[in-house]
């Protein structure tokens, strides 16, 4: 197991290098001149422009810009944005915000999704089962930004029980955005749990558990659920990484100063160092949580061994 984890961690290095280069190249390929965009209506003198271009290596070819960026990274220098702020400072300040949002989303996803899926799976064909099917289909078919605006309008303005933007109310302000961010995955988790549970209820070992005279709660809660949760845990784990990336839309709608919002602003301003730094971090989280899932997988299912 230890060797397996070490190998997987080593594998993240080439992936991170490749991912950061791709992102770097995409920012480089964006049309427009970042310095001119920065200046806005007040034209800068050619001398100032040249100085800025030189400072941010904007006149170098792509490969050299990237090489200089990586050289900086190796010295733990993540670069600066155009106003001179360290990218690392931005990450340090905003990561906790995004992490809280993602955590709120995962909790919603796991609690509501699992509960709905389990109840629907146990009582297939019941009213509740059909309700879950219809609701999840509806959620999956609505784009998240529509859902976000509708939720904001309904529960922030018409029935003002949640703040519409910002994080001034502490944990409470993360509830609505967290639910919106979780909505799509929540629907998937409910569906996946329902199908997986229904499938496992037909397994021979469930019949054995009943033949052993175990209580129905043990037959379902222990013998069926443990097996049914394997695919669900896989999905939720891999989804944590995706949630952080998906936070870009939600954080923008609810004006939450997290990493997603920072990337959005940085893309508009073509601040390469910020975009590459944060998105590469997203990639790292994604890989990391996938590794966690694979390890969890072996713990849940003794038939899986990484030796």
């Amino acid at each position: 197991m230890g060797r397996y984890v070490a190998r997987r961690l080593l594998l993240t290095i080439p992936v991170l290098i490749g991912a950061s280069f791709l992102i770097f190249a995409m920012v480089y390929a964006l049309p427009g001149d970042p310095i001119r965009a920065l200046a806005g209506d007040r034209p800068l003198s050619p001398a100032v422009q040249a100085a800025l271009r030189d400072e941010y290596n904007l006149d170098d070819p792509l490969w050299l810009q990237y090489a200089k960026y990586v050289w900086g990274l190796l010295q733990l220098d993540f670069g600066t944005d155009f106003s001179g702020r360290e990218v690392w400072d931005i990450i340090e300040r905003r990561l906790p915000v995004t992490a809280k949002l993602a955590l709120a989303a995962v909790i919603f996803e796991a609690l509501i999704g699992l509960a709905a899926g389990i109840l629907a799976g146990i009582r297939r064909g019941s009213f509740f089962d059909n309700l879950v099917l219809v609701t999840t289909t509806l959620i999956v078919s609505i784009p998240v930004f529509v859902l976000g605006f509708v939720a904001q309008y309904l529960f922030g303005l018409r029935i003002p029980i949640f703040p519409t933007s910002g994080i001034r109310d502490g944990w409470y302000s993360y509830l609505l955005p967290g639910l919106v961010l979780a909505s799509l995955s929540l629907a998937y988790v409910a569906r996946l749990t329902r199908t997986s549970l229904a499938e496992n209820l037909r397994q021979d070992y469930v019949r054995t558990a009943r033949a052993k005279g175990l209580k129905p709660s043990v037959v379902i809660g222990k013998h069926t659920l443990r097996n049914s949760l394997i695919p669900v845990v896989t999905f939720i784990g891999a989804d944590i990484g995706a949630l952080m990336g998906g936070a870009i839309v939600t954080e923008t709608i609810f004006n939450i100063p997290g990493l997603g919002r920072a990337v959005y602003d940085a893309v508009l301003r073509q601040e390469g160092a910020v975009v590459v730094g944060i998105v590469t971090l997203f990639v790292f989280f994604y890989i990391f949580f996938n590794l966690v899932v694979d390890i969890l997988y072996a713990l849940l299912d003794p038939r899986i061994r990484y030796d």
Partner: peptide, 14 residues
């Protein structure tokens, strides 16, 4: 008490 045909699928794998 009862025993079944296919012990592999009749015992819980986890």
């Amino acid at each position: 008490s009862m025993i079944f045909q296919d012990a592999l699928s009749s015992l819980n794998p986890v």
